[in-house]
Design a protein around this nucleic acid. Structure first.
Length: 489
RNA sequence: GCCGGGGUGACAGAGAGGCCAUGUGGCGGACUGCAGAUCCGCAGACAGGAGUUCAAAUCUCCUUCCCGGCCCCA
């Protein structure tokens, strides 16, 4: 079974064949480090996290690079506003980025190069383009001559002549053609800058990605990813620079994730309609956030509305419930059913879905179906130990990719044999709970056992009171034929 | 204006020629002291119009509405 990837360049799904057998180079555009990350950034990170995990699970040796733009107009402006050094601001935001991405269980990329640390490579690249006659210096800035390359617009489908009307010329710039874009920008007084053959300045936006790809991954990379909002002009211009400079195809597969929207509008800083990741993580678990994102196709826009994460949480809870039950039953199952076939089938369908352009949604649907089969078997008591084991194994392999489930067992409190009236159960009017001991599992188990006894004696007021009090402390009790079961929410 | 992507049941969101999505929610049933969880069952859909086909939510054409990109952006 072969992996196919939707390539933005050809607008088709294509069989995936890396340049070098067994190895995959992946470059994903990162963030401009001038502010905290919002959920849109999280979406991109989560999508590519799973994509890389899947590629690795297929045995590929993946080299994954994600950059930080730490030199840019907005960053300088923000630093000025806050009256801090731009480099300090970006360092702080990069720390914040790692903190929330770790919080979302994103696996770290192979490297995170920064624009500020790639200056010499960028200068080399700009020089190379000038030597080829594809760029010129003007007023301390260097511009790329767009009209000298022929396949402009091959990624975005934009045509040069249509564009001209829409392009503005910033004051102070001295471009020969309004379509030309900056490779190197002359420093304005007081700005962060580096020495270059053209005087003090800093890199243009697009060139850093081209330089980093070349430096860390080579002339031709397998996968280049980013949001759909980067297709034009960012990625288009990267192609121009890199292919002109390297004289080699730049990217084999362009992958673009859809925007996260709110009320159908793109979530963005400029629209001030965004949710910061750290705020969201205060209210929802990383698993729920991941599930919400992965429960949609990465290419389509996804709407974030009030209640989206709650709904994702309820759905995920179902899978978690099954998984937890399976883990709890792992050693005690005593039926006869093996589930071998159902598990093989589920895994086959799951990988088939993932092979089809990383259809995480489909994969999740498969898990829900397996979950139902598992619950049925569990309810009937028909599963044997191997059966439970093989379902767990599918869940585990799924989770290695998605990372949305927690490995937790349920604590079962078996029904005490002796339910004759004793003083073990306190009368409901005097029952109190020592809140300070609620983190003590033994104490909780003790209370649950007291409730079990009360239930056996049909003292339901007392039993319900205990259930209620525990619930106030986030402890949930479920009665099962094997006894009461409890967990922390 | 130009270039993309879309309009699917109450909602969220898959699918891309014939079959079931999946989840939330709703209804009915089983289980239960109650609750929860779970299981079984039911209802409900492919923007509109034409065409291709034995067969279209899926392909083609037209209409219409929405979103994104064209300064920065995951």
């Amino acid at each position: 079974m072969a992996l196919v990837i939707y390539n933005t360049m050809t607008k088709r799904k294509e069989p995936f064949e890396p340049l070098e057998k067994g190895k995959v180079s992946v470059y994903v555009c990162g963030v401009t480090a001038y502010d905290k990350s919002h959920l849109g950034h999280a979406r991109s990170a989560i999508n590519f996290d799973v994509i890389v995990r899947y590629l690795r699970s297929k045995g590929y040796d993946v080299r994954h690079i994600t950059n930080f733009t730490d030199v840019d107009d907005k960053l300088i402006a923000r630093a000025h506003e806050l009256d801090v050094d731009p480099m300090d601001l970006s360092r702080q935001m990069i720390d914040e980025y790692f903190s929330v991405m770790d919080g979302l269980k994103i696996r770290r990329a192979t490297a995170y190069p920064k624009a500020s640390e790639t200056i010499s490579d960028i200068i080399e690249m700009v020089k190379g383009l000038m030597d080829k006659g594809l760029a010129y210096e003007s007023g301390g800035s260097v511009y790329f001559i767009v009209r000298k390359v022929k396949d402009y617009g091959k990624l975005s489908g934009q045509s040069l002549d249509q564009m001209v009307t829409g392009t503005r010329k910033e004051p102070g710039e001295d471009k020969r053609d309004p379509m030309d874009f900056a490779l190197w920008k002359a420093a304005k007084p007081g700005e962060v800058s580096w020495d270059s053959p053209w005087g003090k300045g800093r890199p243009g936006w697009h060139i850093e990605c081209s330089a980093m790809c070349l430096k860390h991954l080579g002339k031709t990379i397998d996968i280049h990813g980013g949001g759909t909002d980067l297709i034009f002009p960012h990625h288009e211009n990267e192609i121009l620079q890199s292919e002109a400079h390297n004289e080699a195809p730049f990217v084999r597969y362009w992958m673009h994730n859809g925007m996260l929207t709110m009320g159908e509008e793109k979530m963005s800083k400029s629209m001030k309609n965004f949710f910061l990741v750290d705020e969201v993580l205060r209210r929802y678990s990383p698993e729920v956030v991941r599930f919400f994102i992965l429960n949609a196709s990465y290419r389509q826009p996804l709407d974030y509305g009030e209640g989206s994460l709650d709904e994702a949480g309820r759905a995920l809870e179902k899978l978690q419930e099954t998984y937890t039950t399976l883990l709890s039953e792992e050693v005690s199952a005593d039926g006869t059913q093996g589930m071998e076939e159902a598990c093989n089938d589920a895994w086959a369908r799951l990988t088939e879905a993932m092979d089809d352009d990383f259809s995480t949604r489909e994969a999740i649907a498969v898990m829900f179906e397996l979950s139902r089969k598992a619950n049925r078997g569990l309810a009937e008591g028909s599963l044997n130990r191997a059966g439970v084991g093989s379902i767990i194994s599918v869940f585990r392999r799924f989770n290695d990719l998605f990372d949305v489930l927690r490995e937790e067992k349920r604590r079962v409190v078996a029904a005490p044999e002796d339910t004759r009236p004793t003083d073990t159960a306190a009368p409901d009017d005097t029952l109190t709970i020592d809140a300070s001991r609620m983190s003590d599992d033994g104490y909780v188990t003790d209370l649950v056992r007291k409730r079990e006894i009360a239930r056996r004696r049909r003292e339901f007021d007392c039993a319900d009171k205990i259930r209620e009090l525990l619930a106030e402390h986030g402890i949930e009790i479920q009665d099962t034929p094997e006894g009461a079961v409890w967990k922390r929410r």
